[in-house]
């Protein structure tokens, strides 16, 4: 009855008080997190691990809704159109910052068209070569690229694995052939079998192959070394100073989601990320846990959007 009374009051007092009342009873039903990638991809794992803990804390189920396609744009647009009531959330990622410059004709802004909650993780990419490869370091790779046309695989046009390769091309002023793959597993098998010279994927899908010696790690793309691969130098250390690529992701909501709900979700994310189980699951995959305020997350997205715009335009990768 109390709930009903509140609703009546809400109706009477209008929108100003609506926000406060909604936040008090929030969440009253299951929450949906849209993941704009296929089930099983690393962002999906992040959403499931963090969502599971948040669900336990908030006492409502959290449903993962995979909406893959068009470089994350399909899922992102679906969230932007959803009711801003805190029951539809988006797992946004570096793809949203790239998307804006990759698809200049988009009718919406995939990076800024959402209300941010917090960053969740950041994970480095890693340059890997076949175990039989004679590429021994980044410097060596660049030297070889000057004498023969190296080929690098990627998970598709405009992914970090593609653009990190393009960044090497621009920074080292070499030319290399980009070989895109739809099925990332096949990109890995072609590198393992030395059909392609290298690939620069996120650490999580390659960690097992690196640790078992089926792939040789040459350098990590983040500005600092990965705790999971402490002996592997950064790109910045090994000849391309300033090289910094990481695949981050975080949580967002449709624009117009009430401030108290955003604050509540930010607090819940903070709590979930401190959980040892969540930390173990994510860092075991090579991801760094990053929590911050919506403003801090917005600053990251701003910086990343600018950075990738330059890379995309240098690579001529726009899709028009």
């Amino acid at each position: 009855m109390k709930n009903l009374a509140i609703r009546v009051l809400v109706l009477l007092l209008g929108a100003v008080f609506a926000q406060g009342a909604a936040a008090q009873s929030y969440p009253a039903r299951p929450i949906r997190i849209v993941v704009p990638f296929a089930a099983g991809a690393f962002p999906d794992i992040v959403a499931r691990v963090v969502g599971q803990k948040m669900s336990a804390d908030m006492g409502q189920p959290i449903v993962i809704d995979n909406r893959p396609g068009a470089g994350g744009n399909i899922g992102t647009e679906a969230v932007m159109r959803a009711a801003p009531d805190g029951y539809t959330l988006l797992l946004n990622s570096v793809a949203n910052a790239i998307g804006k410059s990759l698809y200049p004709n988009l009718s919406f802004d995939p990076a800024k068209g959402v209300a941010l909650i917090s960053q969740l993780t950041s994970v480095s990419n890693v340059l890997v070569v076949p175990p039989s490869s004679n590429i021994s370091s980044l410097g060596n790779l660049i030297d070889q690229a000057r004498t023969r046309k190296l080929k690098f695989a990627s998970g598709g046009n405009g992914t970090t694995s593609h653009l990190a390769g393009e960044l090497i091309k621009t920074m080292a002023k070499v030319d290399m052939e980009h070989v895109p793959y739809r099925n990332f597993g096949q990109a890995l098998t072609d590198v393992m079998a030395a059909r392609v010279d290298f690939v620069i994927p996120n650490i999580p899908p390659t960690i097992a192959q690196i640790q078992s010696g089926q792939l040789k790690a040459i350098a990590v793309t983040n500005s600092r070394r990965s705790p999971l691969l402490p002996e592997i130098p950064t790109m910045s250390e090994s000849g391309l100073p300033g090289f910094d690529v990481s695949s981050w992701n975080g949580l967002a909501a449709p624009l117009g989601t009430p401030e108290p709900i955003i604050a509540r979700l930010n607090a819940e994310v903070a709590k979930a990320l401190k959980d040892p189980e969540v930390a173990r699951a994510l860092s075991g995959q090579g991801a760094d846990i990053v929590f911050g305020s919506p403003a801090e997350y917005a600053a990251l997205i701003d910086a990343e959007t600018t950075k990738w715009a330059a890379v995309v335009s240098a690579a001529g990768a726009q899709v028009k």
Partner: peptide, 27 residues
């Protein structure tokens, strides 16, 4: 070898990982 060959296997891989098991040569 730790490579999922189709979308269902990619999801199974996630299930292994969520259970703290890394599918791959050492599994």
């Amino acid at each position: 070898i730790g490579i999922p060959e189709n979308p269902v296997m990619a999801l199974m891989m996630a299930a292994f990982i969520l259970k703290g098991v890394q599918p791959g040569p050492n599994m």
